[in-house]
Structures are given as C-alpha cells and as structure tokens.
C-alpha cells in the first residue's frame, strides 16, 4: 500500500509538473512567435525590387515581350523604362545562368507574348561556378515569383523570407525604417532609380582616387567550369530557339580599371564560346559595351556596376538593338 501511494503521488506530481511546464513554455515562446510574425510581415511589406517585379508581372505579364536575365551588372544596367518593347528585368545580384534558366522555364507560360530573351555574358561569367552564395534568394523567388529554384521539394518554411537570411532582412528593415540616407526609389519595373551609392560615390568620383582603388575581379581561369557553363548556356539557347524567341546576349560596360585588369585568356575563351554559338544559332544578337567610350566615370557605381545615369545610356543602346531587330 505505501508503495502504491508513493507511485500515485509521483504520477500526480509528474502531471502537475507537465502542466506547469506547458504553461511556462507557452508564456516563454508566445512573444518569440509574435515578434517573428511581426518581422516576417514587415519584410513582406517592404517595397523591394522583387515585390515590384511581382506586381508588374501580375498586372502586365500578358503584354511582356522581352525578359531580361542576369546578375547585378544587368540588374543595374537595364532600366525597362527606356525600352520600347514591354520588358521585365528579372536579373538580380549573384544570379547565374542556372537560376536564369530555372526562372525562365518557370515563368515562360505567364508571358504569352514573349518575343525575346536577354542573357548576360560578362567577362568572367563562363568561368565562375553556378553555385551561388545568395542561398536566401530561393525563398524570395518562391515567394514572389512562385518559381522553385531550390531544385528539391519545397516545404512551407521555404516561403518564409525573414528566416531565409535574417541578417540581410534585418538590415533591410533597419535601413527602410531608420537610417537610409539614400532610400530606394523604384519605378514600376522594380528598377531602383536612386541606386547611386557605391565605391565611386564614396571616392567622390575623383579620377585619381578611383584609379588607385583596388579592383575586385576574378582572374583565376577555370576551364572545367567553362566547359560545364558553356554547355549549359548552349542548352539555354537551344531551349529559347525551340520556343521561337530571339536571343540578345549582352555584356554591360565596365570601368577602364576593371577592363584593364581582365585576364585575356578568360576573355578570349568567353568570346570563342559566343562566336561558336553565333555560328550555330541565327537568332542570337550581341551587345558588347565593355569598352564603349560613351560610358564615363560618372555613369558607374563601382568598377563593374552602372548607376541609374549609366543604366539610361545602356538601356537606350539596348533599345536601338531591339528596334533594329524589329522587336
């Protein structure tokens, strides 16, 4: 009997402890969940490049004639405002051909009037591996574009933006609400018309200081990566050709310090890949402005990114190419 009583009291105390624990756990975690919910909501409410593109796509997707893909160099070089055909610029920082292709395949049905595609072939593009450090963008693409770039089955948590890169989004929230000296001003195409900040602005566009500043450039050759990337790129071209699309391959301008620092071997291999593709596919058109003297120091944010003034010049040149090809 005493043993039974003891067991019963242990059991009762366990039950009481369990209930008490549940109550404490709920009290502890409720504020955490509420604060996280608030952060997620705030991030989703931010006007961003991606949210505006989503809006543009929803409103005018059926009229889009040209889709632009590429990295930050293209993102900041192509302002659809200056283009005659209805254009959507789907490029973003660190975006390589594999993401371009996944996005294109995922979105093409939403653009029934699509006539042309713009792809990027910047200097080092073919010798940089496809793996990107911009892992968080998978959630962004899934949430805003509805395209799965994870290349695996997705789960509900993959749609959460804040948790995909808390550092990045915390900074975005802080900048938006507290301290941005040069706030983003997007047009309806998701192009930031206030994107002037960068190294050259910090150097006050002083030619001498810019000349002395170190250039961030990849000069390491990688022919294995080149072989893979070139073959992958050809698959993309073949896909677009099969869809009856015109293909525009662009190389946005770079400042002369960058142009001079390029590895000539990498450059030569890139050009030979492009040349071979041109021989094979008639629907390819090129716009290479890497050495274009129309671009001056004041058109750049840094050695390989244009500011909105430079984007205007570049976009107008791209528009001439479109018009020339009756787009």
């Amino acid at each position: 009997m005493p043993d039974q009583k003891k067991n019963l009291s242990i059991s009762n105390s366990s039950k009481n402890n369990w209930r008490k624990f549940l109550l404490i756990a709920v009290m502890f975690f409720t504020p955490v969940i509420i604060i996280y919910g608030f952060l997620e909501y705030s991030v989703r409410s931010l006007p961003t490049h991606f949210s505006l593109i989503k809006k543009y796509m929803e409103e005018e997707g059926e009229d889009i004639e040209i889709a632009v893909f590429g990295s930050s160099q293209v993102q900041h070089a192509v302002n659809p405002e200056y283009l005659s055909p209805n254009t959507i610029n789907l490029s973003s920082a660190g975006q390589h051909h594999n993401t371009d292709f996944t996005l294109l395949e995922g979105l093409i049905d939403r653009f029934p009037n699509l006539k042309g595609i713009v792809f990027e072939a910047s200097y080092g593009h073919f010798e940089i591996p496809h793996n990107s450090k911009y892992y968080w963008k998978h959630s962004v693409f899934l949430h805003y574009y509805g395209v799965n770039t994870f290349h695996r089955k997705t789960y509900p948590q993959d749609r959460l933006l804040f948790i995909s890169h808390p550092g990045k989004f915390s900074e975005a929230l802080t900048n938006h609400f507290l301290r941005d000296s040069l706030p983003d001003v997007y047009n309806k195409f998701g192009f930031d018309k206030n994107q002037y900040h960068g190294r050259y602005r910090k150097l006050q566009y002083d030619t001498l200081a810019v000349k002395k500043a170190a250039v961030k450039i990849n000069t390491r050759p990688d022919t294995q990566v080149l072989a893979y990337n070139a073959s992958y790129f050809e698959d993309m071209i073949a896909y677009c050709t099969a869809q009856g699309l015109e293909i525009f391959i662009i190389s946005p301008p770079t400042y002369k310090t960058y142009t001079a620092a390029r590895n000539p071997d990498i450059l030569e291999r890139r050009d030979s890949v492009l040349h071979a593709l041109k021989e094979k596919y008639e629907s390819i058109h090129f716009l290479n402005t890497e050495k274009d003297s129309d671009f001056r120091l004041l058109h750049f944010r840094n050695e390989n990114h244009l500011n909105p003034d430079g984007a205007e010049v570049f976009s107008k040149k791209l528009d001439s190419l479109f018009l020339h090809n009756e787009m």
């Binding site: 502890f28 504020p31 955490v32 996280y36 952060l39 892992y135 968080w136 808390p166």
Partner: peptide, 19 residues
C-alpha cells in the same frame, strides 16, 4: 534568466548563418 534566454533567441534569429 529569461532576459538572457531572450537575448540568445534574438542572436539565434538575427545572426543565423546560412543553413
């Protein structure tokens, strides 16, 4: 203790590295 836990929860969310 709860203040310390909340600080660590904040650090876990805010400074999480790529998964």
């Amino acid at each position: 203790r709860w203040i310390i836990y909340y600080i660590f929860v904040f650090i876990l969310i805010r400074y999480a590295g790529p998964k």
